[in-house]
Amino acid sequence: MNSAVQSLVISLGVMQVARKIPFDDPDVLLYTRIGYVGVQAVVLAIYYYISMSIKKKNDQTVLKYVDSPNAMTQEPGQLVTTTVRDYDLSEVSKLLRSVYMGFAMMGFLHLYMKYTQPLFMQAVMGLKGLYDAKPVQVHLLGQKAEGDLKRPWKAAPGMFGAAAGPQTDNAAVTEAEKRIGGASKKDD
């Protein structure tokens, strides 16, 4: 079962459980808030630990790939040349931004709109998102960077199909290098 379907099944199950919880009880509401903030603190701490681990390893292996093209334009993807260290740190940074955005959305939904069930749901889904994150699988769980975990990491496929990911084959990289070389020759 792919990750999107698994997330849907888990969220539907958590919604059914959340319906049975009496959130109008102040004690239950307090524990739900504590649970949500606790999960978010654990997620942030793990991402911080992973970023420190990446910096400590300092893997300077060169990584070249062609980024997936923008669907809104006709331009081909851009050539990206980076190191494994910088790539992994940028991926952890993306994960941190998603945690902060989720925290802001939950703040709006709970504090302004007075919804409580999403707190419970996001606490559970935060743990699932942590487990699904590729940097967590590689740097914390110790899985080899092979197969689906080979860098650059492809985005998780959606509900209805595969996601377009970066191209790592030599032909795509060589073609992107030629485009860059041709552009610099035109500028001269």
Rank of each mutant, 00 (worst) to 15 (best):
F103V: 11
V9R: 11
P22L: 06
I21S: 01
R33K: 15
V136G: 04
K134G: 00
P26W: 12
V9G: 03
Y87W: 09
D88I: 07
V42M: 15
T168Y: 01
A163Q: 09
L127D: 00
Y112S: 05
T83N: 03
S90V: 07
G13W: 07
L109R: 07
K20F: 05
G107W: 15
V14H: 02
L127G: 08
Q78I: 12
Y49S: 14
A163H: 06
L89V: 06
V99L: 04
S11M: 11
L127E: 02
D24W: 15
P69I: 11
I46C: 06
A155T: 14
S3T: 14
H139C: 00
A183G: 07
K55F: 01
G142D: 01
Y47E: 12
A123R: 04
G142Q: 08
D187H: 06
N58L: 02
M106A: 12
V99E: 04
L44V: 12
L89P: 00
A172R: 10
K128T: 07
Q137C: 03
T83G: 02
K178Y: 03
Y47A: 05
A162V: 13
S51Q: 12
G142A: 03
I21E: 00
Q60L: 10
P135M: 02
L95R: 11
Y115G: 01
M52E: 10
K56I: 04
S7H: 12
A133C: 06
D24S: 15
L127Y: 09
K134D: 02
V124I: 15
D88T: 06
V42E: 08
G165I: 11
K64V: 01
L95W: 03
V80F: 03
Q6W: 14
Q74N: 06
V5Q: 11
A176G: 04
S3D: 02
M125K: 12
T61N: 09
P135G: 00
P69G: 09
Q137I: 05
L109V: 11
L12I: 10
I54T: 04
V124F: 10
D188R: 13
T81Q: 08
G129E: 02
F103R: 07
V5H: 07
M121N: 09
E175A: 13
L130E: 01
D188S: 13
N170S: 09
L63C: 03
V136F: 13
V138R: 12
L8S: 02
P69V: 08
K186N: 04
S68W: 02
P76N: 09
K150Q: 13
L79G: 03
V124S: 02
M101N: 11
A172N: 05
D187S: 06
V17M: 12
Y49V: 12
Y48V: 11
T168G: 06
L119Y: 04
L96H: 05
D67L: 05
Q137M: 09
Y36H: 15
Q74F: 08
K114A: 02
R179K: 13
